[in-house]
């Protein structure tokens, strides 16, 4: 009984520790992603013919950036830009842009505003 209580306590402590240790500061993702905005627009909303990033999924963005980094010969400007980031940083950037996609919560707020406007 004592042993099992100890296991539970250790497991609980580990859970707390791991949540604390691995909780990501999303403002750092935001800062990293903001460095794409010079070319791809504030919050990924590009103007003109440049590609926007605000509708990119995590999976697509990580794949695209890794493909660019993996080119045998770095041909275009983004091949070189992608070389400037670590794998973890690329994933953080992708998580940020993925989080900008329209959510149910946003849709319901939009509906709420439309009601207000009526």
């Amino acid at each position: 009984m004592y042993q099992s209580k100890k296991v539970i306590m250790v497991a609980a402590l580990f859970t707390v520790w791991s949540q604390f240790s691995f909780a990501e500061d999303t403002t750092i993702n935001r800062l990293l992603a903001s460095q794409c905005a010079q070319c791809h627009g504030t919050y990924g909303m590009a103007v003109g013919e440049m590609d926007g990033l605000n509708d990119e999924s995590y999976k697509d963005l990580v794949e695209d950036l890794n493909d660019m980094r993996g080119e045998d010969s770095l041909e275009n400007i983004m091949d070189h830009q992608a070389m400037g980031y670590t794998q973890e940083q690329i994933e953080r950037i992708a998580r940020f842009y993925d989080s900008l996609k329209v959510t149910d919560l946003q849709e319901s707020e939009d509906e709420e505003e439309q009601e207000e406007d009526k």
């Binding site: 070319c39 003109g48 770095l74």
Partner: peptide, 28 residues
């Protein structure tokens, strides 16, 4: 960490230059 430059100058780059500048203007 990394630096790179175009291998060739081109018309395509010239067109991209305007898109780059406009986005830089807007983001700022």
């Amino acid at each position: 960490k990394h630096i790179g430059e175009a291998k060739e100058w081109s018309r395509e780059n010239y067109k991209e230059m305007y898109a780059w500048a406009n986005n830089l203007f807007f983001d700022s």
